[in-house]
């Protein structure tokens, strides 16, 4: 049910934007989803398709840009792609690590008519 609540929130935001801009037909949606959100893109796609069926949004496609988890060490400024979720700097073994990417859950843009 996780991806379903996220889908409902996405659709609410899109409907709001389309209303604001007077667009009638949604063609596609681009999302940015970080690795740490544990959101499965295929489940999200499934929920999205199911939710827009028989609505004015039917037919719209979903494009998902995945963002890998990237850390930056506050000690030595090394940045790296974290592959095992471990927040330990590979250069100096420091543990004061900032997650600079990989936590996103954003609607980037929509294509509409």
């Amino acid at each position: 049910m996780h991806e379903m609540s996220i889908t409902e929130d996405i659709i609410d935001i899109i409907r709001g934007e389309m209303k604001k801009s007077y667009f009638k037909r949604l063609l596609s949606v681009k999302l940015r989803i970080g690795e740490l959100t544990a959101i499965d893109p295929e489940s999200l796609r499934f929920c999205f398709d199911a939710s827009i069926k028989k609505t004015e949004l039917e037919g719209a496609t979903l494009e998902i840009e995945g963002v890998p988890l990237t850390g930056r060490c506050s000690g030595c400024a090394t940045t790296w792609k974290i592959t095992d979720f471990a927040l330990i700097c590979p250069a100096c073994s420091g543990t004061d690590v900032e997650k600079i990417a990989g936590t996103e859950l954003d609607i980037v843009s929509i294509d509409a008519l």
């Binding site: 929130d9 935001i13 859950l105 954003d106 609607i107 843009s109 929509i110 509409a112 008519l113």
Partner: peptide, 15 residues
């Protein structure tokens, strides 16, 4: 066709 840049966090309302 128009591309509307939204750049909004899905969880913006909850946040």
């Amino acid at each position: 066709m128009h591309e509307i840049l939204i750049e909004e966090k899905v969880l913006a309302r909850n946040n």
